[in-house]
């Protein structure tokens, strides 16, 4: 039975997503889709920040690339003729299906990650933090100034609302499956080896630079897909949509869930989507002196992140996966249900 568990998981998730799509109202559908998008973001950021040990803050930049690419490629030619009259003809005519546009954006993001990774990943891991944050500023500035293509600060609106729970959870399953396979492959073990000790990994024949670059490029690729999904969920994007705030929240998801655990990222993403959603109502209702408490939800997230780093630096899940915690590993041939005492001792 165990070997069919992943397949069952896929069927159950897609079944529930389909059910949600037909039964729930727009608000809940949207929250559910945002959860799936955030899971994609967190799991893909975990590749660098959790597994290969390079701390990237560039997720918003790659999201922006995916979102703008998909927006421009899917917008009907007639709408583009009005909104973006100065577009080069081959772009103005392009009316690609959502999936193709998202993949083109992903390729573009991967290319950018590759080009940025070459200079930066030769250095210590935390240089990547500033360089990727710089990349975010660069992408924002380009989106703001490249008027003929991005419409600058006005942004692009009226995007076709392609993103439904089915699309979002479909992509989420693809992202989680691919990243799960990467992490449990020789490449994934090489990433963890690089994280633990670069020199020792190099001595064992791991190409450190190549491994770190691959983790960074893969992460960028899925961030871009999440960006495309997000653009077609909100249906309007501006340069300021992809600010440091998004990066920060995704980092919080990974850190709180547990860097180095895919299920940790999933749990972190679900928690860090629902909690601010609830707090947002508090912000406006619990006004002091008639003034709404904007920023409260971000303060709570920051405090949680601080508390996790100080009191449980490994995050909620540490480096374990959900199946390890529940006992018995999904997909692996192993004696079922270890003694409860063992599981408790682990926790």
């Amino acid at each position: 039975m165990k070997r069919f568990a992943p397949l069952m998981l896929i069927v159950v998730v897609m079944g529930l997503a389909g059910l949600a799509q037909s039964a729930l109202n727009d608000y809940y559908q949207r929250v559910l889709s945002v959860i799936a998008i955030n899971i994609i973001l967190a799991v893909s950021l975990n590749l660098t920040n959790g597994y290969s040990g390079d701390f990237s803050l560039g997720h918003a930049a790659f999201m922006a690339i995916g979102a703008y690419a998909s927006a421009i490629l899917t917008l009907p030619a007639r709408a583009k003729a009005v909104a973006m009259p100065d577009l080069p003809p081959w772009l103005a005519q392009a009316e690609l299906p959502f999936i193709v546009a998202a993949l083109v954006g992903a390729g573009l993001a991967a290319l950018v990650a590759f080009l940025v990774g070459i200079p930066v990943l030769r250095l210590r891991g935390h240089y990547l933090a500033v360089a990727t944050l710089g990349l975010m500023v660069i992408v924002q500035v380009v989106a703001l100034n490249w008027q003929p293509v991005t419409r600058g600060a006005r942004g692009i609106s009226g995007l076709p609302p392609f993103t439904t729970p089915l699309w979002a959870y479909g992509w989420m399953l693809v992202a989680v499956a691919v990243i799960w396979r990467i992490v449990h492959s020789p490449l994934g073990r090489a990433m963890m080896a690089v994280r633990e000790d670069e020199l020792a990994a190099a001595c064992r024949g791991v190409s450190v630079f190549r491994t770190r670059l691959l983790a960074f490029v893969c992460g960028a690729l899925f961030a871009s897909i999440a960006g495309a999904l997000w653009a077609h969920l909100i249906t309007a994007i501006t340069p300021s949509s992809f600010s440091f705030l998004i990066t920060f929240n995704v980092v919080a998801m990974v850190v709180i869930g547990g860097a180095g655990s895919i299920s940790g990222s999933v749990i972190g993403a679900v928690l860090m989507t629902l909690l601010p959603e609830l707090l947002r109502r508090v912000e406006t209702t619990l006004a002091i002196g008639g003034q709404p408490l904007y920023g409260l939800s971000q303060i709570v997230i920051a405090l949680m992140m601080l508390a996790v780093m100080l009191f449980r630096p490994q995050g909620l899940m540490g480096r374990r996966e959900l199946p390890d915690v529940l006992g018995g590993r999904v997909g692996a041939q192993r004696a079922p249900s270890p003694a409860p005492a063992e599981a408790a001792g682990e926790a």
């Binding site: 891991g125 935390h126 971000q298 920051a302 601080l306 780093m309």
Partner: peptide, 16 residues
């Protein structure tokens, strides 16, 4: 990266 993460959190705390 542990301190780097807390510095991000402090930054967010001050901004918000």
């Amino acid at each position: 990266v542990a301190m780097l993460i807390t510095s991000l959190a402090i930054s967010s705390l001050i901004q918000n």
